[in-house]
Write a protein that binds this DNA or RNA. Structure first.
Lengths: 371, 371
DNA sequence: CTGAAAGCGCTTACAG
DNA sequence: CTGAAAGCGCTTACAG
């Protein structure tokens, strides 16, 4: 009713108690809606709070209760549609349960990730959800357990640890995409990822430090190998950010034995590949087939619309939040890893492999010697 | 060096003080790096902290200092690329200054926004950045000033208030897009927004509750009016979410006097319009010209690539964070409103207006009577 | 149901 | 430079 000027000094339970002529404990009980308070006192306290425009200090409350009702999240980059989408799933579930979310970007840098985890822990978050930049360098995550707080890994696992995780079955997804291409007669199938790696090429047995990418590479290679393709690692390309996705795609397409199909590890990569194919004067899918991971809306309106591997990203985030909340509440959770399946959404960027006119004989020879 | 089991009870300055055989005050000074401490004592304390795996409690610190080093942000929807991008700008600037960010989605709902602001205030954020869902219903924002904390409005102003704000010159941007179309001979130019409104049609003088949209509508109408187009409100469409962007676009394109150009108020709307135009068997830009607000990468790879109004979104967020920090530090800031210009990026979705064969005479008459 | 006291983990004057 | 005490704004036993 009465407007009040902004006061430097915040009004506290002590002020309310004084105004309502009760003890701080009683005022706090009425305000915080806990313990026993008579109706008469309660309304007196609430009226005073209203009158003085009281605002509880959540920090002080957290100090006592030991709970901040906050979940800390560390993702690679919130601008990445993948994480933006997952973040929405996390927020929705967390908010519905009365929790807030503190967001931090690691830029896929382990040191930044470690710093973020420390800050979040110091801020007393009740649980942490992190998409580890590396599945190999994860020692800093032990600090979460040391602080006695739940940790849920998003999209990526931590090698050698059984932390709770919510991931997608990337191996199966990559295998499905590869099979789709193989069924159309493709033999030279490329996979392009921007994940950091010592070199753009992949040597069998080498460790790929992000589990999601490692799983995809494994899925592609296994499927290729099973189909009898020799040296299935030949067209695997990692670390494409450093050399440039466009340069990598160009090399693959411009080679003596050009690839006839490309699997892009995310939609941003697909966008660049799409442009390079066009710039080279090639047609999709006549000359080159393309499958992208992730299904942002735009993939449906390009010419041609893209065949994609759709991941349940929102659900991934929601499930991570649900697991975090379950751990906070100390609920019994039997399985530690939640794994979602991805779907292959068939549109129009995949077609039969073009017949390589000049190389046909040689290729036939090579292949028959394997059969 | 020595592994330690997770302890329920966190180690505090008191523990460190005891281990280092100094007072809590001294331990705190060494740990917090403030006040005076001799080198000998400092290293003794730091060693103890290391040994006991000490973690400062940021909440307790905030209780004393009155600062949480946290900025609260309320956006419409983090999944919206616009906000995801702006959020990146906010985070980068905030983090660089040692601040964390608590993110909340309002879903463009004023009640949810109010609740979010309250929670954030209770969590003692040092400043708030909000993209108000309505420029008309903003009374709840007064709570921020009441709590003595800075508020910066993002992308949208609050009618009748001089809160700090960081926006884009939407009026000029919409005018530029309209002029571009007018120059190509278009006379029936539509503008489509999903912003909530009592009806899809717009009646001159009616209030549009989101300043960014209101500015765009004003820019379009003024430019149309200046060009001598009668009833410039004719093809303005709001509230398109309720009826469906596709239905709205279809009506505009299927009318007796169909529009020959469409300005989409964001890239999501543009995507749907793009599809509807195609579904109708029409060509861009031969039959219909299209200009979209925002410039996500995909707009460059469609056939044809889209002409767009590019807003400096990241900068918008960064500037909002900078202003918030300046206010937190109590710096003198002269101008209250920061306004960025948007750029028209010409690609290939705009062409000369098609000649409406059957209506040509009538149209010519109408137009000459205006000249 | 209500109140006085202690405590959450730090920081801040105030003495020495 | 160091320490004892009080305090930040709440909540939590413990009495009554």
């Amino acid at each position: 009713m009465s407007p009040r000027p902004a006061s430097r000094r915040a009004v506290t339970v002590a002020d309310i108690a004084r105004a309502a002529k009760v003890s701080k404990a009683t005022a706090a009980r009425a305000l915080g809606d806990y313990g026993q308070v008579s109706d008469a006192v309660r309304s007196r306290v609430l009226a005073a709070a209203e009158e003085l425009n009281y605002r509880p200090n959540a920090l002080a409350k957290s100090m006592n209760t030991g709970r901040s009702n906050t979940i800390g999240v560390v993702v690679g980059d919130i601008e990445n549609p993948f994480f933006a989408h997952a973040m929405r799933g996390i927020s929705d579930v967390a908010n519905a349960a009365g929790y807030d979310v503190i967001l931090t970007n690691s830029d896929e840098d382990v040191d930044a990730e470690e710093a973020a985890v420390d800050v979040l822990l110091d801020k007393q978050v009740d649980a942490l959800i992190v998409a580890p930049a590396s599945s190999a360098r994860v020692s800093h995550l032990a600090a979460v357990a040391d602080a006695g707080r739940p940790l849920v890994l998003l999209d990526r696992r931590a090698d050698g640890h059984s932390y709770d995780s919510v991931t997608v079955d990337n191996r199966a997804a990559a295998a499905a995409a590869t099979s789709e291409l193989l069924a159309e007669g493709h033999r030279r199938i490329a996979f392009i990822s921007t994940h950091d790696h010592p070199a753009p090429e992949y040597t069998p047995g080498e460790r790929i430090t992000m589990s999601s990418v490692a799983d995809r590479v494994a899925g592609v290679m296994e499927t290729l190998a099973t189909a009898g393709i020799p040296s299935p690692e030949t067209h695997i390309r990692l670390d494409a950010r450093r050399r440039g996705v466009d340069a990598v795609a160009r090399e693959l397409l411009d080679a003596d034995e050009p690839v006839t199909a490309i699997i892009a590890s995310d939609s941003l990569i697909a966008m660049t590949v799409f442009q390079v194919i066009r710039t080279l004067g090639l047609r999709i899918p006549d000359d080159v087939s393309l499958i992208a991971f992730d299904n942002p809306e735009w993939t449906g309106i390009t010419t041609p619309p893209l065949t994609v591997v759709e991941q349940p990203i929102y659900e991934l985030g929601a499930a991570a939040a649900r697991r975090a909340l379950a751990r906070i509440r100390g609920e019994q959770v039997d399985d530690e890893a939640v794994v979602f399946a991805a779907d292959l959404v068939r549109r129009a960027s995949v077609a039969a492999a073009p017949r390589p006119a000049p190389l046909r004989i040689a290729a036939a020879f090579t292949e028959s010697s394997d059969a």
